[in-house]
């Protein structure tokens, strides 16, 4: 019975010593949580910027002329509602994101505590093995062999102790990860839905900005162009005759009118080109904000997967591959850099 107990003990020690004394690395997940926070913040910032820009253009158009239905003032009121709605949505998620940062930090702290226990076990084992080896060398003949055997056992027991510490830390991590699994999945769904809302909002704001630009810089262009072209078409035959014909009364006036029409069309064309350039610039800006929102959605997916991967790795005692997460975060970083550079150029003054 005693031998069986010792054998069982030895088997447990050997098994534990065979286990990798490694605590699951959760820092990349913690980093992903910080990146998620930044991604969500950037997505809202881009949308608020677009709302502000639409508001500013709306005000400029309002200054250009009153409207009997007072619609532009009504649009300003609607814009305020949009800002309040988005601010409320962002606020509602901020608390949840804060709790997720706490969760990630608690995982890192638990993993660090586990690693510290392993280091202590390693240090104890090293000192004991050293002590036994020294005692064996100083003792009677044969003591060295015994000391070697004892030292080997102490080394195995030390490794087992470290593995036990890792096992305990991983079990602690697993409990924490399991306890948060539902909340992570739920928050990922909510954030994804929010970002989809921001996506649709940015598309509509892009149209509103373009529409206000058309109103501000392009109002009447189509009508002017249509009327000048209509006049030229109506006068075409007579003008051609005047240009090629003899110097009859009124010929000079008709030619001057023709030249004025050409100038008017050229002005319309220049104004249209300037308008198109402005519209293109605004579209690019909205496009970048949209790219940030879409990269944010991929960051949400990668963050959720990172948590699932840590959960699976802890359950299966394997290591986590974070390649997908790293790619998503790299893409997000690039999008944010580009948006930041362009926002500096186009930022709406306060």
């Amino acid at each position: 019975m005693r031998i069986n107990a010792l054998w069982a003990f030895a088997v447990v020690v050997a098994w534990l010593a065979g286990c990798a004394a490694r605590v699951q690395d959760v820092r990349p997940f913690a980093g992903a949580t910080e990146a998620l926070d930044a991604a969500v913040a950037a997505a809202y910032e881009g949308t608020f910027d677009a709302v502000a820009r639409a508001e500013r253009l709306t005000a400029e158009v309002a200054d250009a002329g009153a409207d009997e239905d007072d619609r532009w003032h009504r649009l300003e009121g609607l814009s305020g509602s949009t800002r309040r709605y988005l601010a409320a949505l962002r606020g509602a998620r901020a608390a949840a994101l804060e709790s997720m940062r706490d969760h990630a930090a608690s995982l890192v702290a638990a993993a660090d505590r586990g690693r510290a226990r392993i280091e202590r076990a390693d240090a104890t084992r090293a000192s004991l093995v050293g002590f036994v080896a020294a005692a064996g060398a100083l003792g009677p003949p044969g003591a060295g062999v015994v000391g070697e055997a004892v030292g080997a056992f102490i080394a195995a027991a030390g490794e087992a102790s470290a593995a036990l510490a890792a096992h305990g830390a991983n079990a602690d991590l697993r409990r924490r990860v399991e306890a948060h699994a539902h909340a992570v999945a739920r928050l990922a769904d909510l954030l994804d839905r929010d970002l989809l809302v921001l996506d649709g909002q940015l598309v509509l704001l892009g149209d509103a900005i373009e529409s206000a630009l058309l109103e501000r810089d392009g109002a009447g262009l189509a009508a002017l162009e249509g009327s000048v072209r209509g006049w030229r078409n109506a006068e075409g035959a007579g003008l051609a005759a005047a240009m090629g014909g003899p110097d009859t009364p009124g010929r000079g006036e008709r030619l001057r009118a023709y030249a004025h029409a050409d100038e008017a069309l050229a002005r319309v064309s220049r104004r249209r080109q300037a308008l198109d350039a402005e519209v293109d610039a605004r579209r690019r800006e909205i496009g970048l904000a949209l790219a940030v929102v879409r990269a944010g959605r991929r960051t949400v997916t990668a963050w959720r997967r990172a948590h699932d991967d840590v959960r699976a790795a802890l359950a299966q005692r394997t290591t986590v591959s974070l390649d997908g997460l790293t790619l998503a975060l790299g893409e997000l970083r690039r999008r944010l850099d580009r948006l930041e550079r362009l926002s500096d150029q186009w930022r709406v003054p306060p």
Binding site: A54, L205, A222
Partner: peptide, 28 residues
């Protein structure tokens, strides 16, 4: 963008501007 009628263009623009805020105040 296409119409030559400036009043109709303004009305279309007002509708586009309003649609951009349907998230915050649908009734408005």
């Amino acid at each position: 963008r296409r119409t030559a009628d400036t009043v109709l263009a303004r009305l279309a623009g007002a509708a586009v501007g309003a649609l951009a805020h349907s998230i915050g105040d649908r009734a408005g």
